[in-house]
Design a protein around this nucleic acid. Structure first.
Lengths: 138, 138
DNA sequence: AAGTTAATGCACTTCCATTGCACTATAATT
DNA sequence: AATTATAGTGCAATGGAAGTGCATTAACTT
């Protein structure tokens, strides 16, 4: 059993051929990708399958979904220390308005947010929009 | 000329009957509303008109659009000191997963975010999801 | 190998966002 | 006041992404 299949098994996801390939594809990316992007990479596979594959990954904590404000859900593999389900350990995301790519700034943690009385936080989503390093030319 | 029409004129928006009514409606809300909500309040008006009215408001800085992670755009009137276009003066939004309402926490400013070299921030969107004061029963 | 369960593919639906075009109202000009 | 120009509104239709139901196929279990 290879690396990827072991990772999937660890997360209680049966390593089918499709899932291994999707994982591989996600691992190649350095940005968060939309379902459409994955679809384009697997023209022979059905969109629904990819959709459900990613959803399974998400439920099992293999990827996290990112809402970057474009209205299109993006997905990225959780890093080793991602813990995206644990509050206060959330990292922020950056969406480049030039190249339209979304990256996880894993090392940039979201600061503690104070809320008015009676408000209970369960999840925090912080997206910075602007120009990424690739596009700013620096 | 009444209050609302003056405000619209100040922002270079011609105060039509429709626009005045939509503004009025938005002013009544204490939460950010979806286009569908506005539509329900104006059953005789066309969805497109409302859509474009809100878009116009947005362009002219009368309302700001909120992406609360539900996938449905919400809109709220800009407060007197809103300045939603100026960075570092951005407030955060709270989306209640129980009542599904989104509120602007105007007094809660978003802290300064540090970014890696080469990244230029233009806009910041911070949404906290959880239970609002109305639903938490406190 | 038979049977059970999970995964996949196809077709279809829904929902919101958005656009094109015709019509109407408002403002500007003569 | 009539005419023209411009902006706003309504209707119809499109598009894109998310999601569901069901039949088929593949993968595990015994």
């Amino acid at each position: 059993m290879n690396e990827i299949d072991k990772k999937l098994t660890d997360k209680e996801v049966r390593p089918t051929a499709m899932r291994t390939l999707v994982y591989q594809q996600l691992a190649k990316q350095n940005t968060a990708v939309a379902l459409t992007d994955i679809e384009l990479a697997f023209t022979k596979a059905d969109r629904t399958t990819l959709y459900r594959t990613v959803k399974t990954f998400e439920e099992k904590g293999i990827v996290h979904q990112i809402d970057d404000g474009t209205g299109i859900s993006k997905y990225a593999l959780c890093e080793p220390g991602c813990n995206c389900e644990i509050e206060n350990d959330l990292h922020l995301h950056f969406h480049c308005s030039n190249c339209d790519k979304t990256v996880c700034l894993t090392e940039h943690k979201i600061p503690q947010i104070s809320l008015p009385d009676g408000y209970v936080a369960e999840d925090v989503n912080l997206v910075v929009k602007g120009i990424c390093s690739g596009c700013s030319g620096s």
